[in-house]
Write a protein that binds this DNA or RNA. Structure first.
Ligand SMILES: [Mn+2]
Ligand SMILES: [Mn+2]
Ligand SMILES: [Mn+2]
Ligand SMILES: [Mn+2]
Lengths: 151, 151
DNA sequence: ACAATAACATAGCAAAGGCTATATTTCCAA
DNA sequence: TTGGAAATATAGCCTTTGCTATGTTATTGT
């Protein structure tokens, strides 16, 4: 270990435990990323075309079909979706709720980025990753800073 | 596949290829996260205490020491650090440069979050994950929106 | 009705990022 | 100067998330 200077400049280092918590939180968020992206995408596909097929999910995610098949099994096992063979996947109540929350947050992050002057293309790209690391408090702050869309 | 309504409401779905690009980009960013966090942390530890030891890195990241050992080998193989046995790790030129860039971006993201009204604790937590998904364009936008610190 | 095609399933592999358990090495204090 | 503690190394395991290759099943157009 190293324990020099008890009250020195401390440069930019925060307390070890504090920093640890941040890293742990970030790793945690990463573990739910995929689930969130999947249910959100499934909800969008259903809303758009009435069904969500493996091939469409795979194409939009940019991964291979077996990758999607495996993940759908997991989502099914965890109670987010129901698979009707050769008939697409459907969201359970839990799935719908997670999709709603995820989509809302995603949309807010994307709009927020645009509102601070980022181009729509960049906002879309960055939001896809950023969304999963935005806590409720930060989301509220972003909402406040985003001009409401005239409906 | 599904090809109904050629010019219907289209709900919120963007073109498949566009969406694919976003997801690919996010996955790409995730692959550099660890490297960035490591070199940044190593730079901070060296700046703060003159050396970066495995145990300290492990404690701050909140992972086990062998996890760090393995990653340090990778960082070494990829030319970011040099390992002096039982004497800590040191950054190469490349490593220092990546650390500088990462730290700068990290700091900007964190300050930016504070500037839109997020508490410092939440800003710190969220920034740890968000930073890796912020492109240069978005970083510039964040800089513009963050009041400069009086030096 | 049925063959072609599209969709899906399954097997087997790999890399990344974690872990625990344990062996080894260095350092320092008595 | 040497024994014990701390630091590091290594082995072996696991999960997640991706891949390719290939087999199977439904759907559908003729
Ligand atoms: Mn999303
Ligand atoms: Mn996403
Ligand atoms: Mn960082
Ligand atoms: Mn980080």
């Amino acid at each position: 270990m190293n324990e020099k200077h008890d009250q020195a400049i401390e440069s930019s280092l925060v307390a070890p435990d504090t920093q640890m918590e941040s890293f742990r939180q970030a790793r945690n968020n990463r573990r739910s990323e995929l689930v969130e992206d999947y249910v959100e995408l499934i909800a969008d596909l259903i809303a758009d075309g009435g069904e969500a097929r493996q091939v469409d999910i795979a194409q939009r995610l940019g991964v291979a079909q077996p990758t999607v098949a495996k993940m759908l099994k997991r989502l099914s096992a965890e109670g987010y979706i129901q698979q009707r063979p050769y008939r697409g996947v459907f969201l359970t109540g839990t799935g719908k709720e997670l999709a709603r929350v995820s989509r809302e947050r995603h949309q807010i992050v994307e709009s927020f980025l645009c509102s601070i002057g980022v181009s729509v293309e960049t906002a879309r790209m960055n939001a896809e990753g950023i969304e999963h690391h935005v806590s409720p408090e930060t989301l509220e702050a972003m909402k406040r800073f985003t001009p409401k869309r005239h409906l």
